[in-house]
Computed example of a mutant assay.
Amino acid sequence: MATSSEPGGQAPLPQLRIDLDRQILLFQGVDGERAEWPVSTAIKGPGEAQDSGRTPRGRHYVRAMVGHDQPQGTVFIARRPTGEVWSPELAARHPGRDWILSRIIWLCGREWGVNRGPGVDTFRRFIYIHGTPDTEPMGVPRSHGCIRMHNRDVIDLFARLRPGTPVVIVPET
């Protein structure tokens, strides 16, 4: 993965690659630094259609980042902290809630008609890289379309990124 520059000649950006088949997220920093984390993507597999519950493929970028300086385990609803911190007791009171925790890295598609535009828009589908309860398994597709990470991992990743960071989501096969 080569690094990328922002438009207008600004500083180079890191890059992310999400491998749906291997269920991993690969980070490449501008200084050659590399990191890899297990993730959990859509249980329904890849796909771009609105309301499909699938993880969109193709070229994307980080459009927005939410949760800077929030405590690990912060609960978000509609990208706003609720004032709650995830715990097994909180989970028992809200069975079935799709937990979005710690940080939100909101993605936007770059490919018109593929992952951007009517019926397929990653940004309007609210596709995020976000934290999930650490009791959830990684390396196994289980999400509703987003890319889930353990909380300490998404916090680490979040600190390495900024808006505009390129993201590619691919199956390897």
Rank of each mutant, 00 (worst) to 15 (best):
D98F: 06
A92L: 10
G117K: 04
I100K: 10
I18S: 01
P46I: 02
T82N: 00
V30G: 03
A78W: 05
P133W: 03
P163H: 07
E111K: 04
G67W: 11
F27C: 02
H60A: 01
H68E: 15
V140I: 13
N115T: 07
L16Y: 02
P71F: 06
D69S: 11
R57G: 07
Q15K: 15
S143R: 00
E111D: 15
I105Y: 09
L25D: 07
I18L: 11
A11M: 05
H150P: 05
M149P: 03
E48C: 03
L107C: 03
G145V: 06
A49L: 11
G109E: 02
W99V: 01
C146I: 04
F126S: 07
P46C: 02
R59V: 12
R162Q: 14
I129L: 10
S52F: 04
P46N: 07
N115D: 07
A35Q: 13
S102A: 07
P137K: 01
G9H: 14
T173K: 11
R152M: 12
L101Q: 02
L107N: 01
T74G: 00
V62C: 12
G164Y: 11
T132G: 05
C146A: 12
M149W: 01
G73H: 12
R103E: 15
Q23D: 08
P46A: 15
P14H: 04
L157N: 13
G73D: 06
P163C: 09
H144N: 14
C108Y: 09
G32V: 02
C108W: 07
G139C: 09
M149N: 05
R125Q: 10
G139S: 03
I127M: 14
R116I: 00
